Simulated assay, not measured.
Amino acid sequence: MATDGVHLLEHIKTPAMVVARGQVRFANSAATALLGAHIIGQDVRIAIRDPKAVAAILSEEGGTARISGLAVGGSLWEVDCRVLGDGSRLVSLYDLSERVSVAKSHADFVANASHELRTPLANVIGYVETLMNPKAGGDEALRERFLGTIRHEAQRMQALISDLMSLSRIEAVKHEVPADLVDLVPLAREVVGEFRDGSHVTLHTNCDSAPLSGDRGQLAQVLRNLIDNALKYGGPDGPVEVSIEAAQTGWVLVCVRDHGEGIAPEHLPRITERFYRADASRSRAAGGTGLGLSIVKHIVERHRGRFDIESRLGNGTSASLMLPLRDGPAG
């Protein structure tokens, strides 16, 4: 391979090597970072210890092979070998790990969504078929009970579809930083006011105004989801405290705290995953879709903020988010 071609390889981010007579004659920085600087001058069978990859590299016409664990366990790479005019081989290494991971995540998401919809749908069909039986349908008390269950299951499906659509919309714009001016204090007062009837939600602020660049609808959704969660799992008639604290560092801290049973520590790392529930039966009974905290996390990340959940069994749960202020704290 010509010298200028070798120099060109040094400037690309894809790991690349030149192999001649079975030896690695050149490896760019990306390749040595991946495999180690010692591979230069080494037999390619030692540099890449995978029979499929070596066979593709040493074959007369070149070829491709997929190998796993090249960099770290669980990683997936494609080795592509092209035979050059002088008989040397250009070997490029492509990391497929993220692509495979995304595909698996999408497949898992569809499977989980299908499962979540299938259960209430099966219940609705079962109860409707029972009510179609003249004997069961003629019993007024039984009919009322079954219709109540059908309504509950239909509402579960409606809530799940609404959250799925919401999550889809959020992910579609996740790379677009919101630019509208939103004042978090009056927005929080408005959202908290929606929960005043029959609930004990209070709001405390250290400022009259907390302006930031954001999407008003999404920020309202974050507050609603967190307050709704706190009311569901904070115990009967338990108080929910919402606080807003603007700091001189240019950030605003929003915290939603309940005094319920709390969350076991083994669940906390996964609590924002889609469809993950610390207490599945309790969540479904309360009408939870398993997507609320995932939606919150995605919205906070879109606003370039940070989201955290702290909890101790028997001592309640505190969900907090930090968002960058637009013009610094006011009030």
Rank of each mutant, 00 (worst) to 15 (best):
E194I: 00
A210H: 05
L184E: 00
S114M: 03
Y94S: 13
G36W: 13
D237S: 15
P329S: 11
T289C: 10
H259E: 15
E245K: 12
F195E: 12
E301F: 08
V54M: 11
R284S: 02
P324D: 05
C207Q: 09
C207P: 01
L58W: 14
R302H: 11
E153P: 00
H303A: 09
T289W: 04
V54K: 10
S101A: 15
I48T: 06
P239F: 14
R169S: 13
L187E: 05
I150R: 11
R270T: 06
E176W: 10
A319M: 13
G290C: 04
V54S: 09
A37T: 05
F275I: 06
Q155W: 14
S294C: 15
G316A: 05
A172F: 14
E144D: 07
R277M: 12
L9G: 07
S199W: 06
V128N: 07
M157E: 00
R304N: 04
M157F: 04
R312T: 15
V102A: 14
S199P: 00
A172K: 15
K297F: 06
V252R: 09
V222E: 04
D95Y: 04
I161E: 03
V182R: 02
R118N: 01
G36F: 14
Y233N: 01
T14K: 11
Q218V: 02
G137K: 07
L219E: 03
